[in-house]
């Protein structure tokens, strides 16, 4: 298991060093990534064509992913410190030129379609590997996402697992005020998916439900992960400002001390 606390600590320290925003959405997915990379996905080597694939369809949370790469020992501290500098492969959104990134993302609604292709390829090759796709709730506004959803259930892509980071915020406000998603679980269920609702910060539960998914037969699965935007830093929680703003020195100190508690 990876430490969510360490992921959050790295998100805070790196976003301070780089003086950038996108902090809230990265904190929101820290536990989900800790579970996927710590307990679920089978990745022995990035050269192995039969490894599990991961697609951060909500590419703007990439810093959380880079923290995971570091904690897995796949990148050095020196490389992590290149995040958001010139001549880096660790940009705001994941770049597939990096050996640990399967697909570049950043344009919402696209990553899931790549994931459908990856899952279909695994089925065609009769391989047991899976595709895990992390999407945001605002991303469910995208029509192309629902095209992918329909195709996946029609073709019984049991090896496709989508996690919706349901933190209730999108770029200009609350999802419920912009394009209401509810009843979201019902929507996915009616599209033929196996739907599991879970606390997206409860790593034990998350691990348990994802481990139990039958990825060999049946419909694809969506985990509706109830999360808190900015989770772990009280003054960032549910505050849209932290989609955009970098931290002051005082805010950084406060954030780090809360996470380290």
């Amino acid at each position: 298991m990876l430490s969510s606390k360490k992921i959050r600590e790295l998100i805070i320290t790196q976003s301070k060093r780089a003086n950038v925003g996108h902090i809230g959405c990265a904190l929101s997915v820290a536990d989900i990534l800790a579970v996927l990379y710590g307990a679920i996905m089978r990745i022995d080597s990035f050269d192995d064509p039969f490894r599990d694939r991961f697609i951060l369809s909500k590419g703007h949370a990439a810093l959380a992913l880079y923290a995971v790469f570091y904690l897995k020992g796949w990148i050095s501290e020196e490389e992590l410190n290149t995040f958001y500098t010139n001549n880096t492969l660790l940009a705001v959104h994941p770049e597939s030129a990096h050996k640990c990134v399967d697909f570049s993302t950043g344009s919402l609604g696209q990553g899931i379609t790549f994931g459908v292709g990856a899952a279909l390829a695994a089925k065609m090759k009769k391989s047991a590997h899976r595709a895990y796709v992390l999407v945001s709730d605002g991303e469910c506004n995208e029509g192309a996402l629902w095209e992918a959803v329909m195709f996946a259930s029609h073709n019984k892509l049991s090896n496709l697992v989508v996690i919706v980071d349901l933190n209730g915020l999108q770029a200009l406000g609350h999802t419920k005020d912009i394009i209401s998603l509810e009843p979201l679980s019902e929507k996915w269920r009616s599209f033929g998916w196996n739907v599991i609702e879970v606390d997206g910060h409860d790593t034990v539960k998350l691990t348990d439900v994802i481990e139990k998914i039958d990825t060999t037969s049946g419909p694809p699965t969506v985990i509706i992960a109830n999360t808190v935007f900015g989770k772990g830093v009280s003054f960032m929680e549910n505050n849209l400002k932290w989609h955009y703003m970098p931290m002051t020195d005082e805010q950084f100190k406060a954030a780090l001390s809360e996470i380290k508690q």
């Binding site: 459908v116 095209e147 992918a148």
Partner: peptide, 12 residues
């Protein structure tokens, strides 16, 4: 759109 995404995943 989904077709183009699927093709990308298959080609990878």
């Amino acid at each position: 759109q989904n077709m183009a995404g699927i093709a990308t995943g298959l080609a990878e």
